[in-house]
């Protein structure tokens, strides 16, 4: 922010004449750590698959090793609900460990444990799926016209309200997506150029909001009514094509909303803390600001094993 520019400017003034005031710290005086397994897995009764990402961390001050840091393919990933344990297989296409709902069910209120080992390193974590599902009590879908002066867009906005579940600590995340039908150009020559209707799913974006967040908790607000921030998705814009010789086409997207899915996640603490810590990490390149730590609940490693219970409301225009 402003203070940083200020400091940098001031430092430039001071440091300009004296380069030698910058010194490399000897490698031996720096903290040395081992590479750790990094595991991310978010489970919910509503998901069709359970996916597990397994990677590893790269120590910063060690000898560089280009083989480090990628996806770990040979790990044994086990998921258990206390009674049943499954080994989650690796899927080479997506580079994930993934299992279908039909082979391992996630149920509300149950506690799950996850263990990952690559033969050398082993980590484990547990989480409990929140028992209650919550849906938006009201919602508001609107359109707005905004953006930089030279490039205005039509966007769709969404807002939701819901009631907190009283007498328990809750963490929420709001999400929304839109299924849209619209036109895109098809063809590469003036002869075969035509308009094509396609369907796609877009996620609403909550990132440009502060104060209210798409991640909320009910500290001091038990049982209260919550408002979501404004979610926004930009609708496709028209494109023009000019093949020369007067062969120009303009494709209007003619967007048609198929459905808008609004979800409220009743998430566990790990889910909330992990995502919030990623969101607030922000300004960490400022040497004067205390960096924010990234949350982890992986015993012996890094990453997050968390759960949520999602309640959906789907709006379909008539």
């Amino acid at each position: 922010m402003f203070s940083r520019q200020l400091i940098l400017l001031f430092l430039t003034l001071v440091l300009a004449a004296c380069e030698s005031l910058v010194t490399d710290i000897d490698q031996s005086k720096l903290p040395q750590v081992d590479s750790k397994l990094v595991v991310q897995c978010f489970i919910s009764p509503q998901s069709t698959r359970t996916n597990v990402v397994v990677t590893e961390s790269i120590p910063l001050f060690a000898e560089p090793d280009y083989l480090k840091g990628g996806v770990i393919r040979n790990a044994i990933v086990k998921l258990s609900d206390g009674a049943k344990e499954v080994v989650v297989p690796f899927d080479t296409a997506s580079q994930l460990y993934s299992i279908d709902k039909s082979l391992f069910t996630i149920s509300a209120g149950k506690t799950y444990s996850l263990s990952v080992t690559d033969g050398v390193r082993s980590v484990k974590a547990t989480c409990t799926v929140p028992a209650n599902e919550i849906r938006a009590a009201t919602y508001e879908i609107d359109s707005s016209y905004s953006g930089p002066i030279t490039n205005r867009d039509t966007s769709l906005t969404v807002k939701m309200t819901w009631y907190d579940i009283a007498q328990e600590t809750n963490y929420y995340r709001v999400r929304a997506s839109i299924d849209l039908e619209y036109s895109v150009p098809d063809g590469t020559t003036p002869e075969n150029f035509k308009e094509k209707r396609i369907r796609n799913r877009f996620n609403f974006n909550w990132d440009d909001t502060i104060g209210r967040n798409d991640f909320r908790n009910d500290v001091n607000l038990d049982g209260a009514s919550f408002n979501s921030p404004i979610g926004r998705v930009n609708l496709p814009v028209g494109t023009s094509y000019d093949f020369g010789n007067g062969n120009s086409f303009y494709i209007y997207p003619k967007s048609k909303i198929v459905s808008v899915t609004m979800e409220i996640y009743n998430a566990d603490e790990h889910y909330f803390k992990y995502h919030r810590s990623l969101q607030t990490r922000g300004d960490s390149d400022n040497p004067f600001i205390e960096p924010s730590l990234i949350y982890t609940n992986i015993d012996g490693g890094l990453g997050c094993f968390a759960s949520y219970n999602s309640g959906q409301v789907i709006y379909r225009p008539k």
């Binding site: 978010f42 990402v53 961390s57 790269i58 120590p59 910063l60 899927d91 994930l96 890094l302």
Partner: peptide
């Protein structure tokens, strides 16, 4: 002081078709 770096996947897995038209999850 940071000691190591890693990729922090968020719960934003997306499913898109790959070249064969088969849906593939990416993160």
């Amino acid at each position: 002081l940071p000691v190591s770096s890693y990729r922090a996947a968020t719960d934003n897995f997306t499913t898109r078709p790959n070249g064969d038209g088969k849906p593939v999850v990416s993160w």
